[in-house]
Computed example of a mutant assay.
Amino acid sequence: MKKLLILLLFLSKIYISAQVGIKTINPKSTLDVNGDMNLRGKLYVPNSANSQLTTGINDQVLVSQGEGYPPIWKTLRIPDYEQNKFYLIFSNSFSDRTGVKFTSSEESANAGSISTSLVKNAAISSLSLFRKISALSQPFTLYSATSKMYFQFETVVQADFPSNGNPDISIDYACGIFVDDKLVNLRQRNIKASSGTNTFITHNQIGIAENLSKGNHTVSVACARLKSYNSTATLGIGINVAANIDSFIAQSSLKVDAYEVPEIFNPVTN
C-alpha cells in the first residue's frame, strides 16, 4: 500500500506539473536528467511525414531540426579515411564564353622583360598585361593543411590572320592559373598563321598547387598577349575573332580537384 501511494503521488506530480526532474529539483523540460542515462529499450521520435512514432533503422542517428521541432532520424554516410593518404575532397568544373581579346597595342614593348616577371607566386597586380577570363574565377575551400590542387584549363586561341607569308606571321601569348591572385602555373605559346585564314588552335594547361592554407581560396585564369611578329591581327583567347568558328567552339573550361590528407577525426566510441 505504501509503494502504491508513492507511485500515485509521483504520477500526480507528472500530471500536474508536466515536468519531472531526476537529481534536480528544478526541471527545465518535461524530463530533466541531471546525470548519466542508460537506455535498454527503444527510443521513439515523431515522424513528421506521417505523425507516427518511429525508432529509425540500423546505423541511423538523431539529428536536431532546431528549437521547436522534434529531432529526426538520419543516415550519415561518413567515409572511412586512412592515415597519411590523399582523398578527393572537392571536384568541380566551370566554363566561360566571354574570353578575352587583345589588339596589337595591348602587348609588351619588350617581351623579354615580361618573361622575367612570370615567376611562381607573382601577383597578378604586377602583371599588367594579364586579363582574367571572368567566369573561371571560382572559390574553393580546403579543410586540411596537407593538400594537392589540380587545375586543368582548356581553351581555343584564335587570330584573324591572313594566310601565312614570308616571313612568318605569328603572335606569342601566355596564360596563367592563379590562386588568390598569385601565379601557380604558366604556359607560353605561339599561334602561327597557316595556309588558310583566321587560324585557331587548342590550348591545354595543367597546374598544381600544394599545401595551401586551410580555409577559403579563389582560383582564376588570366592571359596576356606578349609579342607580335609581322602582324596587327586581333587575338582571341576563349572567344572567336572570326566567323569560321563560334563562341561554343572557342569557349574555355576549368576543372578543379582538391586532394587532401584528412586531419585527426575524433573516433565514435560506445
Rank of each mutant, 00 (worst) to 15 (best):
L88P: 08
I89W: 01
I89N: 02
F90K: 05
F90P: 00
S91L: 10
S93P: 02
S95R: 13
D96R: 01
R97S: 11
R97G: 02
T98E: 12
V100Y: 09
K101A: 09
T103V: 08
S105P: 00
A109Q: 12
A111D: 08
A111N: 04
G112W: 09
S113I: 04
I114D: 06
I114M: 03
S117A: 11
S117G: 01
L118I: 09
L118P: 07
K120W: 00
K120F: 04
K120L: 11
A122F: 10
A122C: 09
S126Q: 13
L127P: 00
L127W: 06
L129C: 04
L129S: 11
F130C: 05
F130K: 01
R131L: 00
R131G: 00
R131W: 00
K132E: 15
I133F: 11
A135Y: 12
L136T: 08
F140T: 10
F140D: 10
F140S: 06
T141G: 00
L142R: 09
S144E: 14
T146W: 08
K148Q: 09
K148R: 04
K148G: 00
K148D: 06
Y150D: 14
Y150K: 11
F153T: 10
F153H: 13
F153S: 06
E154F: 01
T155Q: 07
D160E: 14
D160S: 12
F161D: 08
F161Q: 07
P162Q: 03
G165C: 04
N166W: 03
P167I: 04
I169N: 04
I169C: 04
D172F: 07
Y173Q: 10
Y173W: 10
Y173V: 08
A174P: 07
A174G: 13
G176T: 05
F178P: 06
D180K: 02
L183E: 02
V184Q: 10
V184L: 08
N185Q: 13
R187W: 08
R187V: 15
R187L: 15
R189W: 00
I191K: 01
I191T: 04
K192T: 14
A193E: 07
A193W: 05
S195H: 01
N198M: 03
F200E: 03
F200N: 11
I201E: 14
I201D: 14
H203D: 13
N204H: 09
N204C: 02
I206D: 15
G207Q: 09
I208P: 00
A209I: 04
E210K: 10
E210N: 14
